[in-house]
Design a protein around this nucleic acid. Sequence first.
DNA 1: TAGTTATAACTGACCAGTTAGTCAGTAGAT
DNA 2: ATCTACTGACTAACTGGTCAGTTATAACTA
Lengths: 219, 219
Amino acid sequence: MQTEPRGPKFRRRAEARPEEVLDAALALFVEKGFASTRVEDIASRAGLSKGAVYLYFPSKEAILEGLVQRAVVPIAANALGFLSNYTGDPRPVISSVLKMVAHQLTQPGTVAIPKLLIREMIHFPELAAMYRREVLDRVLPVLEQLISNGVAEGHFRPIDPQLTIRSIVGPIVLHMLMAEVFGIVPDEGLAMERLVDNHLAILFDGLSAPQSDRRFMAT
Amino acid sequence: MQTEPRGPKFRRRAEARPEEVLDAALALFVEKGFASTRVEDIASRAGLSKGAVYLYFPSKEAILEGLVQRAVVPIAANALGFLSNYTGDPRPVISSVLKMVAHQLTQPGTVAIPKLLIREMIHFPELAAMYRREVLDRVLPVLEQLISNGVAEGHFRPIDPQLTIRSIVGPIVLHMLMAEVFGIVPDEGLAMERLVDNHLAILFDGLSAPQSDRRFMAT
DNA sequence: TAGTTATAACTGACCAGTTAGTCAGTAGAT
DNA sequence: ATCTACTGACTAACTGGTCAGTTATAACTA
């Protein structure tokens, strides 16, 4: 059945191994959780033996750490530059950031790490702390500044910037949470774009109909 | 040292045992996760031996099931009656529901079960499905109806009811998630009431300042 | 009231299954 | 011929679930 039944039993490819182990581990951790994934499963999915995994990682936990490390590095460098020191009406920026985040979250790999962290945080609190330091503590202050500027320059009502971050991002997070955890999606599927559009309309201009739109009131 | 060093080794209290086991299990599952909690830990915290636990629950998993069952029953009966068949301006209802939910979430026991489910759902999908059936599938349609009515009667802009639920509840969920998972709370503490007030202001009337409030624009 | 019996409630040592991590030996590369 | 990437059987530790035996308590007897 194999294309090469008489091929060598293994190859020596020390350079590529760690990445392959991390890929395999991520897939399995997401699918079955950290505890239920055996090191041997990771090994065989990565195409080597259990013993070989321990040549590259000192423990099972170290694999998880490597996973989070690898995910954290690009984020810090990524979506921050074009947010900082922005002045002027923040609404277009918020719109495009939300759309970008929403699009990112639709890609399979992106949610995997936070999902994993939420599950395993209790067993590895240091890991969650690291994610917080490297990702959240960098992104949140920038958002806060953006909103503060919006208030200072009169584009926004005088709202609390810290708390408003939750009003901006919360709906997208809840949407993903409902879909991922309980399989609750809108009638037409995930509909991430429509969610963002619907949310932005409410976010900027509110749920309440303007007076001119009120056709009739409750009897 | 004991007040009663010669007291009996145990008491026969068959009626009270299951509840005590569930209480002990909930505390430990929340603290250390399902897998890392040994049945013996549950037993000793509940004040009996491991063997006795198996007189009341056929397996460790059955304890978890019992936990979710116990949490689910009151919810279905609780906050639904006063929401159904409501007509008229939904805004006061939404305000009080959000405030009620926010207050509930501050009580320690309430978040425990959903937190547990998010963590253990992968290992026990049937349990998450049950929670969805018994809680979410009952609450969400009522909220959806409430918003639909608001739109039909002209109180709200013509927004999508299903998606708008996320805009209403998402910020509270994210607030709890940030606090519980990453320990990120506003400067003054959890500030749940201020969060709800800030959010309701945005939710009903939007983030954008009305024209009259715009003192100056970006240069 | 005190002793006897019956039985339900409970204990804790034990078993069986699982798996992270080790290491002596093997096989591919150069 | 040498070096090193790699294998896989093994061990040591852990824990869910069992069960033969023990103890508390209620019911019965005298």
